[in-house]
Design a protein around this nucleic acid. Sequence first.
DNA 1: ATGCCGGGTACGACCCGA
Length: 259
Amino acid sequence: MRIASWNINGIKARLAVITAWLEQEKPDMLCLQEIKSVDENFPRQPFESLGYNVQTHGQKGFNGVAILSKLPFDETHRGLEGDENDKQARLIEGVFSTASGAFRVCNIYLPNGNPAPGEKFTYKLDWMDRLHDFVVSRLKLEEPFILLGDFNIIPADIDCHSPKDWYGDALFRPESAERFRALLNLGLTDALRATTSEPSYTFWDFQSGAWRKNNGIRIDHLLLSPRAADRISNIRVHKELRGWDKPSDHVPIEGDFDF
DNA sequence: ATGCCGGGTACGACCCGA
């Protein structure tokens, strides 16, 4: 089973690119971030025609996440618990069954947090603390659990072309990195970093010729519970998509699992 | 480079992203 994550920066603007990629790669599951659409306006039919079940958690104009899955959804959960005043659509989770048992995929669009310090940075850190509590509850289930998406976290110097450009940024500040490490310390595996010590960027800014200069960052991640880590055989970043026409500023990251 | 691009809303600018 191939499971991918992709921040597509607007479903309306990216529909043609996404369907072209799905027809070419045929992943079993694609988790989208930044759909920037309400649920009613999400174009379900093009994906259903390609054999995907569609679940969305949208909001007007900003944010929004969705899961496209060839396997049917046993359960779906929307939103991150812990703050009844948080209305931003940044988390959707699906539970799926296979012959080898159930597994769970949680798709997140973690807040950017800039400028830091400030209200947005505080929101990011609070969101990460709530995510930590959520992950603790999921790990207690002792099932294969994949936490994936756009984390808006650069885990280490190797994950950006030019670390000095990122000092003080909400994606790279110690408070952010510390909370990311706390997730790993719960027992989650950073799937990409577990398989290579090379840089492997997932985002290149639209501005300043970042793609041409390979001035990228690695901020899209697959984190695996122990039982999910046991099942992964390969992981890849589809860097080539950044060079397609009408690209997103992010590219897909995809893992191969034996369920 | 607190905005160089690109997408959103809405139809002229302004908000947001990383």
